[in-house]
Nucleic acid binder design. Structure first.
Lengths: 339, 339
DNA sequence: TTAGCTGGGTAAATCGTTTTATGCAATTGC
DNA sequence: GCAATTGCATAAAACGATTTACCCAGCTAA
């Protein structure tokens, strides 16, 4: 197997008996070459297996065909595959596949703002940033370098931004609450996270609004996302202090799993003694006993929209960039009262 | 926020009143500059926030600080996050983290041999290829382009290769079989996959050897990896045809899950009626009912070794490149006979 | 006749680095 | 006292593309 140096534009030009400019123009539909010459060059290039070097091209054009993805909540956890959080992996996987459809590929970048970062980080064409928090340093960094980006979830600090894709968390929350109410719950406790992102904010607002409309007293709790199941477990005594709720709606899957566990230890089993639902679907909610009703945020759809928007922006277009994606309630045993 | 063009080596040189060569040499510990000059340049560069452009550097050096990872078994599945297969995701995640320790970052490349591939694919510093099959086209491609790579699992077609890291599958298989035997099994059926990779081959060989040593008749079955749980389920009637085995050792987790299900439907429950163990640990084996005894291949350790080896190679060293990693048997209920 | 256009092409600058080949004092060796 | 070495620094080539500016022959229009 000959370690043959890759064929360059110069080689193609030599073989075709033209200048390298001609080759570049032929292959990029630029310049004023005759159609015959173009075609001839294209054929020769193809025959020689020529493929433009991405680095050289990127150096000139400053587009390299790669976008980055930053999973903020996992940055915070400093663990990129925590058990029970498959939303981000599904999203990242789907984003990678969607990127290919746009001739891009996707590179996961860990923690853009601390420590040594991949050398390529600032040469990427653009970024997807999931669930930025208010005044997110990653967003600031990208802004300051004028690197295009799209956020998954609105940036709470930038109400007028127009480069986001988000699940319709307000609608999803109301759907879940309505479902619990239909199954007989009246006194519904809400457990959110502490990150200052739009996902927490929108869901809380929707919960408070929903309670106000029905004139019931809201019972809102918060637990840091980073604590995972323990965060949910530890919340339960406090939650029970104010009386056993008819239902609990927990935004994160790990909190829900912890809540379910601690409630069981206290003798409360869903759906007999209380109803339980969760704001994001995950392996854990599916395999829990009983399986937990959850909202499928449809990460695949979100990923497709997000990447499509970013691809448009990197191409220099100025698309309408505020896109809401409907999510879907998956009803499981934990919230179904037998009638 | 000014869209300031990034600071280049030229800017630093101008500010320091030296040539760009001096800056390059100072920052890369090359050349013959005086230590004072070096230090002065380093300070100025740091103060200006200079960071060498990865593309330009890569163009010259042909090292870009990024390695690729190709997950062959997932290429075959054409689904990069199949439920029940968390081994590869754990491996990829751990590899990304390990890469950072070597100043590299990791990019997942889907299916290097078909369709349009990321433009950067052939400019990467090297590749990790998981579980190559015999005459794997991806391996051939990398060879022909003389791009360095390390395989996870030996390449069955290249017995003399010295660029692999692998779990010690022969030892692991014997450990699992011994464990089953200790719990009373004598007639142990083995279910492998059909991919022609070293993982299947080594485990099968170990099984056959183990049986021969004990003078028992081997019962070896194979089912395509791609069929997943269904592959395990469909195998069960055939398996039972030759009598109910004392124990079943299934290499893949998805097959094991399918087998467990179909066995239950036939009225056979582990560990009462037969013992069950599995050659790779996964979410599914942990959460199955009963939980399934499995081998933890320790993907984190494998990833660390694999990336370390590749990093050495890309730096131009010629390290000893055959590394076996011990795996660990995790005993769960499915294989424990009460005494 | 000549200035101006047009079609088809090329030379050279450019992107931001690294690396190789030089240059020039000051010092050393004999 | 002169060649050789040493120490420090720079000029210029190279990497492989894209893009800008230019060239030239052949027409057209006045």
């Amino acid at each position: 197997m000959a370690a043959h140096r890759n064929v360059t534009i110069k080689d193609v030009a030599a073989r075709a008996g033209v200048s390298i400019t001609a080759v570049s123009h032929a292959l990029n539909e630029k310049g004023t070459l005759s159609e015959e010459t173009r075609e001839r060059i294209r054929e020769i290039a193809a025959a020689m297996g020529y493929q433009a070097d991405a680095l050289a091209r990127g150096l000139r054009r400053s587009r390299i065909g790669v976008i980055g993805i930053v999973l903020r909540p996992l940055d915070a956890l400093a663990d990129y595959s925590p058990p029970g959080v498959d939303y981000f992996l599904r999203f990242a996987g789907a984003a990678a596949v969607s990127a290919l459809d746009h001739g891009l590929s996707l590179m996961q970048v860990a923690d853009l703002v601390k420590g040594p970062v991949t050398p390529l980080a600032f040469s990427l064409d653009g970024y997807v940033v999931t669930d930025p928090v208010r005044d997110d340093p990653v967003v600031d960094l990208l802004e300051s370098r004028s690197i295009p980006y799209v956020t998954l979830g609105r940036d709470p600090g930038k109400p007028t931004a127009s480069n986001w894709v988000a699940s319709d968390d307000a609608a999803a929350t109301r759907t879940a609450l309505d479902h619990l109410a239909e199954n007989g719950a009246r006194d519904i406790a809400f457990v959110g996270g502490t990150d200052d992102n739009s996902w927490n904010a929108d869901a809380e607002d929707a919960y408070l609004g929903w309670c106000a409309e029905r004139d019931v007293t809201p019972r809102l709790f918060r637990s840091p996302e980073g604590l995972g199941e323990a965060g949910g477990r530890d919340l339960v005594p406090r939650l029970l202090d104010s009386g056993v709720p008819d239902a609990i709606y927990s935004l994160t899957g790990r909190h829900a799993a912890g809540i379910q566990e601690a409630m069981r230890e206290q003798g409360y089993i869903a759906p007999e003694h209380y109803l339980l639902a969760c704001g994001t679907d995950a392996a854990q909610t599916r395999t829990a006993e009983p399986p937990i009703t959850a909202i499928d945020l449809r990460p695949e759809v979100l990923a497709r929209e997000t990447v499509a928007l970013l691809a448009q922006i990197t191409r220099g277009e100025s698309p309408e960039g505020r896109r809401l994606v409907e999510s879907e309630l998956i009803v499981r045993r934990s919230s179904q009262r037998e009638r």
